[in-house]
């Protein structure tokens, strides 16, 4: 009994959010903020939620994705608009794939603690490689607004950084949800549940745990890279190493996944909604204090609600008709 009905709930939620953003004046910005947070939660969830492994270097994948798009737009724009954009997406995906293949290939063979340690270095390592070796503009980053205006005209540039960027984020966000639903219903999803619960028993049940962890890790990282390419590079038209490797995005994504329910389809949606709204109002009420408030919140969630909101509801719904729509 494969079940894609929870995906209906998810798609409906996206539809409602987009409708609200389009119809109520002033709501488009907050809606895009919410969708961005849901997306980074969803992409992290594919790995952290389903395997129980932590990726402390998560933001680095958004960062290299942002660089992939930035490099295409900044250095290869003479290819013409559409080829450059396609190249940007491909570079974003390839860079994310490369980083995840190397880090995962080395550290996923080892116990979870070692993997977590390896990922702590990823973000700093790549950031300082770019800055120290002065790659792609080094500390100065890549500033695209001037280049884009010169190559494609002001009109196209505005379109790229508004409508196109937002549409890109939404497409990637929805794709991430669909991929999650697909994984949950596939052999991969079952393998991940098994290895999350007991890696050694999973091996004896026939699961090549290293292989499946690696697949989940690479999927999660590529999705993150595409989010970085759209939500950051296209939308902001610059790539600064200090910004795209800022650790707070890793923390935020983890909070969203844990709050909503690790390993569930709808968890990042609920977690992202709660978190983005909370952040929006916290930023108004307590500017600069978000992380100070988030950190204890994360601890409280871990200690008191390890299953998260959706995990809790899904458990309660088991055996009822709601069951098919919550996962």
């Amino acid at each position: 009994m494969k079940s894609y009905s929870p995906l209906i709930t998810l798609l409906l939620a996206y539809l409602i959010m987009i409708a609200i953003g389009q119809s109520i004046p002033g709501m488009w910005q907050p809606v895009m903020l919410v969708i961005f947070y849901i997306a980074i939660g969803q992409a992290l969830n594919v790995f952290l939620g389903m395997t129980g492994y932590v990726n402390f270097g998560y933001v680095a994948l958004l960062g290299v994705g942002a660089y992939g798009m930035g490099v295409a737009l900044g250095y290869y724009n003479e290819l013409g608009l559409i080829p450059t954009l396609i190249l940007g997406f491909i570079l974003a995906a390839i860079l994310a794939l490369l980083v995840s293949a190397i880090v995962g290939g080395i550290a996923l063979r080892l116990r979870g603690a070692y993997f977590a340690i390896a990922t702590i270095g990823v973000n700093e390592g790549i950031k300082y490689l770019i800055m120290g070796a002065k790659i792609w503009g080094g500390s100065e980053g890549i500033v695209l607004s001037g280049i884009l205006r010169k190559s494609f005209g002001a009109e196209t540039m505005r379109f790229l950084s508004t409508t196109f960027a937002d549409a890109g984020v939404i497409v990637v966000a929805i794709a991430t949800g669909v991929v999650t639903a697909y994984i949950l219903n596939s052999r991969l999803g079952y393998a991940l549940i098994a290895l999350r619960e007991d890696e050694e028993a999973a091996k004896v049940m026939g699961i090549n745990v290293t292989k499946y962890k690696q697949i989940a890790f690479m999927i999660s990282c590529v999705l993150a890279g595409l989010i970085g390419a759209t939500a950051w590079t296209l939308k902001l038209t610059y790539v600064f190493p200090q910004d795209v490797f800022a650790i707070n995005y890793t923390v935020e994504a983890i909070v969203i996944v844990m709050l909503g329910g690790a390993g569930t389809l709808l968890g990042p949606l609920v977690g992202g909604l709660i978190y983005a709204l909370l952040k929006y109002y916290l930023a108004i009420a307590f500017p600069g204090l978000q992380l100070l408030i988030l950190a204890p919140l994360l601890i409280v969630v871990i200690l008191l609600f390890p299953e998260g909101v959706v995990g809790y509801i899904a458990k309660k719904a088991r055996g009822t008709r709601l069951e098919n729509f919550v996962r």
Partner: peptide, 20 residues
């Protein structure tokens, strides 16, 4: 016994069928 604790009984057995 080493069940996959948070999965259902049916999923546990299905995992055997999938990967055995």
């Amino acid at each position: 016994p080493r069940p996959f604790g948070s999965a259902t009984v049916r999923e546990n057995v299905a995992i055997g069928a999938m990967f055995g």
